[in-house]
Simulated scan of single mutants.
Amino acid sequence: MNSISKVEKLFNLFNETAVILQEELPSSYLEALAETGENIFHGDVLQDELSEMTKKRLLKQYNSLQLKSYSHEDVRKGFQLAILKGMQENVQPNHQMTPDAVGMFVSYIMDKFMEGKKHYTLLDPVVGTGNLLFTILNNQAHRNIDSFGVDIDDLLIRLAYVGANLQEQSVQLYNQDSLEPLLIDPVDAVVCDLPVGYYPNDVRAAEYELKSDKGHSYAHHLLIEKSMNHVKKGGFLFLVIPNSLFETEEAPKLNAFITEQAYIQGLIQLPQSMFKSKAAAKSIFVLQKKAEGVTAPKNALLAELPKFSNVDAMQSMMKNINSWFTEQKSK
């Protein structure tokens, strides 16, 4: 059985059992998906209110699945497809998942910057369903990563919790506003696909340097400041940012904050073709918090990625990126 059919088989099982639960509970598809994920993890039907016939139908499906025979990445992808189906049925602006290709590339870039570290701590302050975080953990299985995720949306964090269990990933998850105080020690690295928009809590925003002088503050600016404050000296921030980040009225203040606090290590523009419009396009922004012994790179890693499907152009780009890292080592 090849990898694609394994992912499809997992998706079909997640989907079919979620639909059965959705019809009888009643609940939304995503809520039912979280319920069926819990059932699969425990190897049982946990919902007492279901009819005996429904329980038997579900158990027959669950018993046909040998989760141990699937890789963590197969499980992530199968579960992700089911989540995407649920999100398309009930579109909410804060229910958006980092595309797989972006997650894989962020993981690759992180792997290069964190080279030599067998163990490190990692925080995703807007973890959502955990797809970006799990992509990194699954692709850096050669490292011992203590990871933390925070999200204000209780359904998304529940899906992240279920996904973590199914993928056997030990992640500490917190259901709260990440701009409130966190009960997490400073970490070695922060990864975040920044949600773009305004932060409604002006009282909390007032505690931040990057608060707006008038009206609501940008949530993504405050999250950059929060991430900077929550990473150790010399630690890294891997941020998926809108390309328009430095084009707003508040940009000069943000620029001054970053210049004071960190060194820009890299800015990698994601392929334009990945986004619905030029205005929606994003980049990967890599910062290193200033510390004794940490210096700015002679030249930051600047790149504009071709389409991921253009194999030759991607190979050429990867060669250039690898050369940049080799030059940094020889400094």
Rank of each mutant, 00 (worst) to 15 (best):
L245C: 08
L237E: 02
P181W: 05
L245I: 13
M228F: 05
Y218F: 15
G234C: 09
L239Q: 01
I184E: 01
Y174Q: 10
L223T: 04
N175E: 13
F246L: 15
V240R: 02
P200F: 07
H230I: 01
D193Y: 09
F238K: 09
P200T: 05
G215V: 07
D177N: 14
F246T: 08
A189P: 03
G234W: 10
S212G: 14
D188N: 15
L179G: 00
R204P: 00
L223R: 06
V240E: 10
F238S: 09
L179C: 00
A206R: 13
Q176E: 05
L223Q: 08
V190W: 04
S212T: 02
G235C: 08
E207W: 01
V203H: 11
K226A: 10
S217H: 10
D193I: 08
L173M: 09
A219T: 04
V231H: 02
K214N: 12
M228S: 04
E225Y: 02
G215H: 08
A189D: 06
Y218T: 02
P186K: 15
A206Q: 14
N175W: 06
V196M: 10
V203I: 15
H220L: 06
L237V: 11
A189M: 07
V187P: 09
D177T: 02
P242N: 07
D177I: 04
E209F: 11
K232N: 13
Y208I: 06
L237S: 02
G235S: 12
A189H: 04
P242Y: 09
Y199K: 02
E247D: 15
E247P: 08
G215M: 06
Y218E: 08
S227A: 15
S227M: 05
S212R: 10
G197M: 10
S244W: 08
K232H: 06
L222Q: 04
F246M: 14
C192Y: 01
N243R: 14
S178W: 01
V231I: 07
V240S: 02
Y218V: 00
L245R: 11
Y174T: 03
D177A: 05
D185I: 00
S178C: 13
A205G: 06
F238E: 10
K232V: 15
K211W: 02
V240Q: 09
Q172D: 12
S217C: 07
L245S: 06
A219C: 12
Y198A: 13
V231L: 05
D213H: 14
Y208A: 04
L173T: 02
I241S: 01
A189G: 12
N201S: 07
P195K: 04
L237H: 04
D185K: 13
K214V: 11
P195M: 07
S178A: 15
L179S: 00
L222W: 06
Y199D: 01
I224K: 03
N229D: 11
D185C: 01
L222G: 08
P181N: 03
N243Q: 14
V191C: 05
E225K: 09
S227W: 04
V190L: 04
S244F: 12
I184P: 02
Y174E: 09
N229I: 00
K233D: 15
F236C: 06
D202S: 14
V196Q: 07
D185H: 08
S227I: 00
S212Q: 07
K214P: 00
I241C: 05
N175I: 02
A205S: 12
D213A: 13
